[in-house]
């Protein structure tokens, strides 16, 4: 037990240093552009732009921290939140890897598998994008060809269809209610598509609520 704490604590310590450094670097990029070109933008313009994205994306950002940190574990969170693309890549990758390895999130083994999955995924993503930018003139015609467009437009359905089978079949009793709720909601209000990040905790609350009732009645 003591060792587990000390490992987690060391990840927290390293993670905080890396994350605050990454934050500083990310803010240094626009600052560097301003200094180099001596082109400081009008503060009002930046605020106005921020005002149109911050209400939604800051809310989603806060929600993501509370929903994904328990799934990703300590190391996985520090890495996943820096490297991004959580819902469409890192979270499914980590969940699937833990499931395949037969380990639970939140355990020491789950921590190791989740961090390895997210680190591998981050490294591969970075390399593919770097390679893509370098070879762009050769591969852009292929990637942008109309034949391939449906494949890239449908990446989320293809991902969650497969992931759904794995996790719904395990806990179908918990899954039915949030699933029906979400399908009905999107059928009735299609414009909610851009707010899917905000709906994740709604789905989680429904699932956890139903699970609690079933658990209390000994039905799980």
């Amino acid at each position: 037990m003591k060792q587990e704490l000390s490992y987690r604590d060391s990840v927290h310590k390293t993670g905080r240093i890396w994350m605050f450094s990454a934050l500083a670097l990310l803010l240094a990029v626009p600052a560097a552009i301003c200094v180099y070109y001596s082109a400081w933008p009008p503060v009002g313009g930046v605020l106005k732009g921020l005002l149109s994205v911050a209400p939604i994306f800051w809310t989603v950002g806060v929600i993501e921290v509370f929903t994904y940190v328990p799934m990703l574990g300590t190391g996985g969170s520090y890495l996943g939140f820096v490297t991004g693309n959580l819902a469409n890549l890192k979270v499914p990758c980590a969940l699937n890897s833990m499931d395949r390895a037969g380990v639970q999130p939140g355990t020491e083994e789950g921590e190791v598998i989740s961090t390895l999955a997210i680190a591998t995924s981050s490294i591969v993503t970075t390399l593919i994008i770097a390679l893509g930018v370098l070879l762009l003139s050769q591969i852009a015609p292929v990637l942008e060809s109309p034949v391939l467009q449906p494949a890239f437009e449908n990446i989320l359905p293809a991902l969650f269809g497969a992931l759904g089978v794995v996790f719904i079949s395990k806990d179908w009793k918990i899954a039915i209610a949030p699933l029906l709720f979400m399908i009905t909601l999107f059928l009735l209000v299609p414009s909610l598509g851009s707010a899917v990040g905000i709906l994740v905790p709604v789905g989680a609350l429904i699932a956890i609520g139903v699970a609690r009732v079933l658990y209390k009645k000994n039905l799980l």
């Binding site: 929903t67 328990p70 799934m71 819902a87 979270v91 969940l95 639970q104 999130p105 939140g106 989320l156 359905p157 969650f160 269809g161 992931l163 759904g164 996790f167 719904i168 395990k170 806990d171 918990i174 899954a175 949030p178 699933l179 709720f181 979400m182 399908i183 909601l185 999107f186 059928l187 299609p190 909610l192 598509g193 899917v196 709906l199 994740v200 905790p201 709604v202 789905g203 989680a204 609350l205 429904i206 699932a207 956890i208 139903v210 699970a211 658990y215 799980l220």
Partner: peptide
Amino acid sequence: WGQIFLSGLFLGMISAFLGLVFARVQ
């Protein structure tokens, strides 16, 4: 219950994204 709680969290996320798949049916 701890394990079930985490499963609920996953399923909440998966449900939201599966629901999204139906957003263009209209």
